[in-house]
Design a protein around this nucleic acid. Structure first.
Lengths: 228, 228
DNA sequence: ACACAGGCTAAACATTTGTTTAGGATGCTG
DNA sequence: CAGCATCCTAAACAAATGTTTAGCCTGTGT
């Protein structure tokens, strides 16, 4: 529901409530009457402003995509944070929740877009893949990663690992007991991931006395084959 | 539609077609009339056999869960394959598609279960987490992995990385150009993941920065590393 | 032969859905 | 004030959905 004093136009209120409901339950599961009720207007007004439910969905889609793009413009823009600095080199999912209020419905909405096979979802996924591909190149440039046997696949693996937290956020919170996208959760999750990225599963993290003997991984190979 | 000679009972045909349609489009998006048409029966017969659409959904759910459990019984059973052997130690998602016909709707159905927040989905996720937790213990026991700073989180990270391929299968196929859960795709994907798990992103510390050119085409099933 | 049970269907039903229609209120402009 | 555009609503509408009703058909046991 909206508060009594709200400087947003009714159109904006409808759009925001639709975004919230779509993110929580999926576009198909939400009815025009639910949206209208949440926005405090009549169902007919929703259609009046957006033409149809599909029209509303497209406006919400674009609104979320615009937010997404403007948020990542500063990550790839002129003064982008240094990817080589492990303090700033967070995951894409982390960057997302860090730039948004904690109760923002946008991460959940992006999750639904990524899981759908709509054109918008595919476009978003391609954008993220480009982003990951560029990030891998930057890591290689900085000497923090090898290109792998197949750089495209390596970039996809890194992206998949990253997005997995966003996609399974609720289930992970349930089994782990904390939200992996909360401030504290991101630290705990990120520590394991960074350890894995830097030394693999066997690496010797500082301060773990109970580790088995094996001093350093054999490191038998780097890039046995060229990229395709 | 069903072929003329089909030894399954109509009840089984309905269940199988419902599974296929549910996996492809989601339970809510599929109507009783679609299921009936696909099974070649009347909508009323579906209700006659299963009471309601919800009853049908529960039967399909249980059918898929039974298949899942029986499939993983042999992975944790008396003569379980050796987790320490890299030739058999595939991911959970891999094991799934390996034990199923290529056109089975079950992976897609499990995907939808994992992404839903239904009790069945949560239960399945917990089962997978237990499985992953046990697999990590076995890896540590075999000296192939450290426990990490936080074993629960490490097990969750490994599981998330694993399930990510299942959840984003279609999108990954779209950007990579191949199905990461096909036989060939699993090799290409698994190679990157195993390299990462064993040595991290940098490989051997003195790794050469330039890509060696190699005429070797993709396809050989030789594992490049994996000490053993 | 007869009754009867089970697999099965056509048709109707109640509800919900997105959408349209017709018009009310309010404020701005000549 | 008159005219008019804008924002908005109540009510009706058509289509689709899950479900119920009533009954057909076929095989089987007595």
């Amino acid at each position: 529901m909206r508060s009594a004093s709200d400087d947003r136009t009714a159109r904006a209120v409808i759009r925001d409530e639709a975004l919230r409901l779509f993110a929580a339950h999926g576009t198909d599961a939400v009815t025009l009457r639910q949206i209208a009720a949440a926005a405090g207007v009549s169902p007919a007004l929703v259609v009046h402003h957006f033409g149809s439910k599909e029209g509303l969905r497209e406006v919400v889609d674009q609104h979320v995509l615009d937010t997404f793009e403007s948020m990542f413009a500063e990550l790839t823009g002129p003064d982008a944070p240094d990817l080589a600095d492990p303090a700033t080199a967070g995951s894409m999912a982390e960057s997302l929740v860090r730039h948004l209020p904690a109760d923002s419905p946008i991460p959940a909405y992006l999750r639904r877009m990524l899981l759908s096979d709509s054109p918008a979802g595919r476009h978003l996924f391609e954008r993220l893949f480009q982003l990951s591909r560029g990030a891998l190149d930057a890591l290689v440039e900085a000497g923090m990663s090898g290109p792998g046997a197949d750089p495209d696949v390596r970039a996809a693996v890194l992206m998949a690992n990253d997005l997995a937290v966003l996609l399974m956020r609720d289930q992970l919170r349930h089994v782990l007991g904390f939200d992996p996208l909360s401030g504290d959760g991101m630290r705990r999750w990120g520590r394991e991931v960074l350890t894995m990225y830097s030394t693999g599963l066997l690496g010797s993290p500082g301060g773990e006395p109970t580790l088995p003997t094996s001093p350093t991984p054999p490191g038998p190979d780097t890039d046995p084959e060229a990229s395709r």
